[in-house]
Amino acid sequence: MDTVAAPPRSADWLRDDLGALEELTGHQVRSRYKRPGEPDVWPKADVILFAPVTANSLNSWALCLSSTFVVGVVAEGIGKRIPTVAMPCVNAAYAAHPQIDRSVETLRAAGVEVLYGENGFVPNPSGERNPYPWRAAVDRALQK
């Protein structure tokens, strides 16, 4: 792992761990767009792993609604042809919404490897929490 992007709320939740993540990766954890004129503190990406992807981020990404930094990074990644692996994390109630399948198909058609369904993340029943299959997501990204 070279860099970490976290939505602002997640960065806030992780605030006590941000220093350790930056030390581990050697790069600043980013949660917001850089200001005009500021240098880009990240190296060029060889691969992107976007996980866990919420229903909101999945649908925003598929529609190229990049109002958050994290969705902006992965939306640009498609255009830059950066190999990308994504693994959603949605419960069965969200998964039943027809937009989820449309978004997964849109992203797959754009070249994103979406680990969802039979060969990836299987939605949990609402209220049930099963361990997130991080190892499968990381292993697949490392194969890119």
Rank of each mutant, 00 (worst) to 15 (best):
K144M: 12
T106K: 14
I48K: 06
I100Y: 09
H27G: 03
R35T: 14
G127S: 08
K34M: 13
E105V: 09
W61R: 05
A51M: 03
Y132T: 06
T3P: 05
K44T: 11
T106E: 10
R129S: 14
F69I: 11
D2P: 04
W134R: 06
Y116Q: 01
M87E: 12
V112C: 05
V47R: 05
A109T: 14
H27N: 14
A96E: 04
L142D: 03
A136G: 01
A110V: 01
R35L: 15
A11Y: 06
L21G: 09
P39C: 03
R9V: 15
V29D: 01
W134Y: 12
A137W: 05
A51Q: 00
L107E: 04
G117F: 13
A86S: 14
G127Q: 08
S126Y: 02
A110M: 14
A137Y: 03
L49I: 08
H27F: 12
T54M: 10
P39L: 04
E128G: 06
L65H: 13
G117H: 07
D16N: 15
P123N: 07
F69K: 02
V114R: 01
E38A: 12
G37D: 00
W61A: 07
C64M: 13
V47H: 02
M87V: 09
R15A: 15
K144H: 06
V71E: 06
V114D: 01
L65R: 12
Y33I: 04
S67T: 15
Q99C: 05
A109Y: 02
A55M: 07
D101Q: 15
D12E: 15
T25D: 00
V53Q: 03
R32M: 07
A62E: 02
V73Q: 02
G77N: 04
S67F: 13
K34W: 07
M1D: 14
L49K: 10
D101T: 11
L142W: 11
S31G: 09
A109H: 08
A92Y: 08
Y33L: 13
L142V: 08
C64P: 00
E22A: 13
N124A: 15
G79V: 05
K80D: 00
K34I: 07
A92N: 01
P43M: 12
H27S: 09
V74F: 10
G37Q: 03
A51G: 04
L63D: 05
I78Y: 01
H27P: 09
R15Y: 08
L18S: 03
L18N: 13
A55S: 11
L21S: 04
E118M: 09
